[in-house]
Design a binder for these strands. Structure first.
Lengths: 185, 185
DNA sequence: TATACTATTGACTGATTAGTCAGTTTTTCT
DNA sequence: AGAAAAACTGACTAATCAGTCAATAGTATA
């Protein structure tokens, strides 16, 4: 693993444990086993590091999710696939999950930034389709997207807090129906 | 306004604008027009100040909401009243809203703390009743509570971002149905 | 009035931190 | 090989910040 990647991985772990401000850059470098200077060689400021990490996570979530959506699927099947992939990804990548949670309520976060990402664009397209076809409620697509995202976050947080895994298919479906019913007409 | 209250109000504004760590205690004192020392007289540490603010907000939300729920109401009416009160409260008290959002994703936050509050207890009782009576989905009450809370947060954030107010009753109902449908059987 | 307690001040401090920099090593290209 | 560029080091610094403290003002009580 090159030093830049080492820094991102270590920073994500430390940030998710101690928060952005609770983690000194010197500590990130030390635990990544690189020099202090090299951190600022790759990321001129701490802010740049944090933003780079955000895109790193979204990219990986995109790669993980999108391959799973197959062409002939119905709208509900596609949404289910994306929902399940997001839940799984967040359960499996605890540090990414915690990092994003913190990032989105921090002063670093801007909606415009998120909109640029192809993952969000893909989701919005699907939702727009659902609204046009009359399958979804007449609610702004962005609000539906945000609502489902926050429900996914809540679900993951709940499962983790109770040390649960998604091994019960029937229960998993019941969880998904919560999200689906909130947007379906 | 006494100095203790002045400090809480000023801190809430600064925290909501710049975050917990982006706001120095010295600045809180300065903008509250009190001395630096008096802050630590009332709140021995910054953490104590932050936790005191959390309870201050929850208390006020409780007072605002609970009076509006009337005795003979159906379950759906009660939930609607609480939902609308929470949305209104958060729209009207922007600094409280931003503060709570940050608090809940910060290292200060513990679920146990929240559980102690009578506002949360009231909501959980209502949800339990809904599950027992078969009106709600068979999902853990705490998950339902968290899910609705996060939907309220999302809704408020969306309305604010688009400079909208809840003057259209029909639209308001449509927003509520999103939340209701996700928990109703 | 005297005593005790609480409220208040603001200068100060020890610790921490983001970011710098002068110099060294490694890699890349001709 | 040799020059140029990129990767890398770690000691250093200027600034910041939470919390202290000794002293003063105000208030309540006996």
């Amino acid at each position: 693993m090159d030093k830049r990647t080492k820094l991102i991985v270590t920073a994500k772990r430390l940030f998710s444990e101690h928060g952005f401000y609770g983690t000194a850059t010197a500590r990130i470098a030390r635990e990544a086993e690189v020099s202090n200077g090299i951190l600022f060689h790759y990321f001129p400021t701490k802010d740049v590091l944090i933003k780079a990490m955000f895109f790193d996570v979204k990219d990986r979530l995109f790669d993980y999710s999108v391959g799973q959506v197959y062409k002939g699927a119905t709208l509900k099947e596609s949404i289910y696939t994306l929902w399940l992939a997001a839940v799984e990804f967040n359960l499996e990548n605890a540090n990414d999950f915690e990092f994003i949670r913190q990032f989105e309520t921090s002063p670093f976060y801007r909606t415009e930034t998120e909109l640029e990402h192809r993952y969000v664009q893909l989701c919005l397209e699907l939702i727009d389709k659902g609204i046009d076809e009359g399958q979804f409620k007449q609610i702004p697509a962005m609000l539906i997207f945000k609502s489902i995202s926050s429900q996914i976050e809540t679900t993951v947080r709940f499962l983790k807090m109770n040390n649960m895994v998604l091994d019960d298919v029937e229960f998993t479906h019941r969880l998904f129906e919560m999200a689906w019913d909130s947007l379906a007409k």
